[in-house]
C-alpha cells in the first residue's frame, strides 16, 4: 500500500473502502515494519506536544530569542474574553493557538515541526480548535493528523515544504493544506473533498514569499501562521459545502513547486528581500545582532 500523489491516495481509498487516515497508517506499517499501535503512539506523542504548546502560550508570557514577538496569544485571549471579536470565537481561538505555538517555538520551547518549525502553529491551531468545537475523541484527532501527514509527505515528495526552496507558500501554505484535509476527512468529507480542501488552501497563498526579518522565525512568520489557520478553516468549509477545487490537488502542488522555483533567491529565506529588506527590518536587524 503506497501512494505517490493525491490521486493515487484517493484511488486506494476508493478501492479498499478505507479512510485516508487508515490508508496512511497501513502504508506506514508496511514501510517501517512497525506495528499500527506503535505508529499511533508516536503520533500521540506529537499530539501531546502540540497541545502542551498551545496551553503554554495561553498561560505564560513568553519571550522570543530575537525579541520581535511574545504575548500575542494572551492578547487575543483577552480580547475574546471581552466578547467583541471580529472573527468569532472559533477563528479567534484557532488564531491564538497558532500564534501561541509560534511564541513557544521562538522562545526555544518544545514544538512539532508540521511540516516545518516556521509553520508549526497552523496544524495544532486549526485541528485542535476544530476538535474542541466538535468534541472529537483522541482517535479522531490522531486520524486528522495522519491525513494531514499524508498530504504533507505528498507535497514533500512532489514539491517542497522548505521556505529556502519554495518560499512561504511551501511552508505555511503546505501546513494549511495539511490541516484543511485532516479536518474535512474527519468531518465526513470524501477523499476527493479532503484533497480539494488542501488544493484550495495551497492556491490561496500561491506565490507567497519567504522574507523573515533578521532571518529569524518570528516576523512575519507568526502572523502568517494566524492567516494559515484561517486559510485551513475556510478551505475546509468551502470543500465541505460541496464547492470543488477547479484545479485538482496534484496539479496545484506542481504549480506551487514551479512558482517556488521561479522565485529569486532574495525571496527564499535569505532575508535579503521582501519585508526583511525594509528599513524597519534592517534597523531591527542591527539592534538584534549588535
Amino acid at each position: 500500500m503506497n501512494f505517490k500523489n493525491g490521486s493515487e491516495l484517493e484511488a486506494l481509498c476508493m478501492e479498499t473502502g478505507k479512510s485516508m487516515a487508515q490508508v496512511c497508517i497501513e502504508r506506514e506499517v508496511e514501510l517501517s515494519g512497525r506495528s499500527e499501535e506503535n505508529i499511533r503512539e508516536e503520533m500521540k506523542l506529537n499530539y501531546v506536544v502540540m497541545k502542551n504548546a498551545v496551553e503554554r502560550a495561553k498561560n505564560e508570557t513568553l519571550h522570543s530569542m530575537g525579541g520581535l514577538i511574545g504575548g500575542e496569544a494572551q492578547k487575543l485571549h483577552a480580547r475574546m474574553q471581552s466578547g467583541k471579536t471580529v472573527c468569532g470565537t472559533r477563528i479567534s481561538k484557532a488564531m491564538a493557538a497558532a500564534m501561541g505555538v509560534m511564541e513557544v517555538n521562538a522562545s526555544m520551547g518544545l514544538i512539532v515541526a508540521a511540516p516545518t518549525a516556521g509553520s508549526c502553529g497552523i496544524l495544532p491551531g486549526a485541528v485542535l480548535t476544530t476538535a474542541e468545537a466538535y468534541g472529537w475523541d483522541e482517535e479522531q484527532i490522531l486520524d486528522a493528523l495522519f491525513v494531514a501527514g499524508a498530504i504533507g509527505l505528498i507535497i514533500m515528495r512532489n514539491a517542497t515544504v522548505s521556505g529556502a526552496e519554495g518560499g512561504c507558500q511551501a511552508e505555511t501554505g503546505s501546513a494549511a493544506a495539511m490541516a484543511a484535509a485532516g479536518i474535512v476527512s474527519v468531518l465526513g468529507g470524501s477523499p476527493r473533498q479532503a484533497l480539494d480542501a488542501a488544493a484550495v488552501a495551497l492556491k490561496n497563498v500561491m506565490g507567497l514569499v519567504c522574507d523573515p526579518i533578521a532571518g529569524l522565525v518570528e516576523s512575519p512568520c507568526q502572523k502568517r501562521n494566524a492567516i494559515g489557520v484561517a486559510n485551513a478553516l475556510l478551505s475546509a468549509e468551502i470543500s465541505l459545502a460541496g464547492i470543488p477545487s477547479i484545479v485538482p490537488f496534484d496539479e496545484v502542488v506542481d504549480a506551487a513547486y514551479r512558482v517556488g522555483k521561479k522565485m529569486p533567491m532574495e525571496l527564499r529565506e535569505t532575508a535579503l528581500g521582501g519585508l526583511a529588506a525594509t528599513p524597519t527590518a534592517c534597523s531591527l536587524c542591527s539592534r538584534i545582532y549588535n
Binding site: 520551547g109 515541526a113 508540521a114 504533507g152 495539511m178
Partner: peptide
C-alpha cells in the same frame, strides 16, 4: 524533491526545541 519513501513523521515531526529545524 525526494524519491525515497517519506514517512508521515517526516511531515509531522520532529518534536524539537525551537525555533528552527536547520
Amino acid at each position: 524533491m525526494a524519491a525515497k519513501n517519506l514517512s508521515v513523521f517526516d511531515a509531522i515531526g520532529p518534536r524539537m526545541v525551537g525555533p528552527s529545524s536547520s
